[in-house]
Design a protein around this nucleic acid. Sequence first.
DNA 1: ATTGACATATGACACTGTGTCATATAGAAT
DNA 2: ATTCTATATGACACAGTGTCATATGTCAAT
Lengths: 211, 211
Amino acid sequence: MPKQTFFNLHQDKRKKLIESAEIEFTRVPLFEASIANIIKMAGISRGSFYQYFEDKDDLYFYLLEAKLNKAKKTFIGFLEKHQGDLIEALVEMYFYFLTTLSDEEEKNFLRNALLYTSYKVESSFSSMFDTYLDNQEFIKITGLINRQCLNISGDKELLHIFKILSALAFNNLIEKTVKGLTDTEAMESFKLSVNLIKQGIYKIEIDRAEV
Amino acid sequence: MPKQTFFNLHQDKRKKLIESAEIEFTRVPLFEASIANIIKMAGISRGSFYQYFEDKDDLYFYLLEAKLNKAKKTFIGFLEKHQGDLIEALVEMYFYFLTTLSDEEEKNFLRNALLYTSYKVESSFSSMFDTYLDNQEFIKITGLINRQCLNISGDKELLHIFKILSALAFNNLIEKTVKGLTDTEAMESFKLSVNLIKQGIYKIEIDRAEV
DNA sequence: ATTGACATATGACACTGTGTCATATAGAAT
DNA sequence: ATTCTATATGACACAGTGTCATATGTCAAT
């Protein structure tokens, strides 16, 4: 978390610093990003940077967290829109990432985050549930979900389904990025996977009721 | 890929270098690893290092690739053992990672790889299929798989199922690592997810035959 | 308006690390 | 012995990080 000094900063200065950081982290992934570039762009001194942040990571994860929180809000919106259908919401979320976020800069920031800190990105997203076990946000989200269409017996299964689906979404995004698939190809691939998961991958002839 | 000079090296020297690199990459992830440490341990000069490898990444991914190839071979073994049951093979593979690989050093190397270059690790593993489309290895693997118990219509679906399952396995491994779960907890979590995928997550009352 | 106390700003610096290059050495082939 | 080629070396130029002594700004109290 940035230090208090950073939050005391005049809005303009803070904004310029954030923008400079975004440019740098869009250009290259975290480990290649240089503080020198950021402070040059923002027009502040090296010493000041360390008044505001612990180090490069501090700034980076602050930015990333903000973007992820925005994404989570968007997701909750989709959940409401689809009357709690988790899968429909996730499919639309995936689509949203592919298209609405198709602004090149934003995309490259995401790409750098996904490839080099995927575990942070994904665990932040998929832990939307289990980190907020006690607060309103958790209740809000789980309350939204329509459980009737899901083959689950309790909260534990619900959590797992959410994890499976977000794992799938993130892995598809990474695959798209690495292989340079088009949006359409990525979307189709994702839908195919989701359908397989919906139906179940094991062939069984008997009536599902016995499960 | 290391340069020819590296492969021309006397076996002892090469082995010592590899071991030194493993120690360093076990200590810290790629981006924090230092060539200085590796050459100090291996007792070679800085210049020599650059005779053998393009850079740090070159050495790292050479080691990683070797470990992944070993893992792939192990997986094929499990596939044979379980008469082509993809899921049983993967569950055992996951178990193998958790236990057989429980030697602390090896584990930390894996941890560093998973957290910071997960996309490389996973795409290397899950592309076991689609990168070898033409060669014997592909035929060997797909030939091994028992399709009768899978709810698929062709190779495309098979590929997706494999991707889904490996995404799940890797994400579970990462979750275990990040959250510090015990082997048992991780195994249970993985099995729960796998069962959900087997059965399908959508509740349907009708006979599956109509799908 | 001056003082003092505190917050903020600065860039030189010590340090660690990378990749290169001119030079040295070894080995094999003739 | 000589020449040719492969390999070895560490000093060096460069780039980056985090720190610190010092400077500057701010503002409340007198």
